[in-house]
Amino acid sequence: MIELLFFLLTPLLFFVFKQIQKVLNVTFANPILLSILVIAVGLYMGGGSYIQYQAANVPFTSLLELAIVALAIPLYNEFETIKKDFLNVLLCVCTGVITSSTVAITVAYLLGASDQLIATVAPNAVTTPIAITVATNLGGIAPLSAVIVICVGIVGAIIAIPLLTLFKSFNSASSGLAIGVACHAIGTARALEYNAAMGAYASTSLILSTVLTPLLLPAIFSIFKLVSGF
């Protein structure tokens, strides 16, 4: 009985929070974050077992890998628009992936974080499902990475455009690229609201970082381990 309740809880809460966000229309009311927090707090307060909840939700989690494969569809859609600028866009997104992970790893290391925590904050800029996969492979705490990533998206969606407009060089293409690689899907949704061009570059950059992060991060992580000796 409790299994069925745990199984229904995930979609039920998600769709309720999605409707609430549609009405409120504020970035902070992110349905993914709210669903995670409400279920987590519920389990914590009610003394429920996460293992039991997780087992009841296997039908959902087992589709994660298939959905990641399906990301090839938006990548294919975006590819037409960036073909002419492809190398420059690729260079920008690579730089973004390297910057976000290197800065997070270095700062965490300097503040005395454990290996496990360093691996957890490393994939902070990429879309949640990839962050979960990468954090697991690096030996980090995947659920914590997931929550960090969503918070980065929310904070980024709020501060990115006001921050970038401070610069004389502000334009839609470069801001879109920066937002897509630094603040993934939640930032991209905000960029789309600002204007279509910024949205298009943000989703291109989001999709490319989805592919590049799992390719680059293990290498960056190994290099850092070698240099710092942690």
Binding site: D85, N88, T95, S100, V103, A125, G156, L163, S172, A182
Partner: peptide, 26 residues
């Protein structure tokens, strides 16, 4: 966690937007 992640987000936003402007993307 907050310090590491916030530093990463801000630096990525600034580095990528400046690089993309220099390269005149789009």
């Amino acid at each position: 966690i907050l310090t590491a992640v916030l530093a990463a987000t801000l630096s990525t936003l600034l580095v990528v937007s400046q690089l993309a402007s220099k390269l005149k993307v789009g």
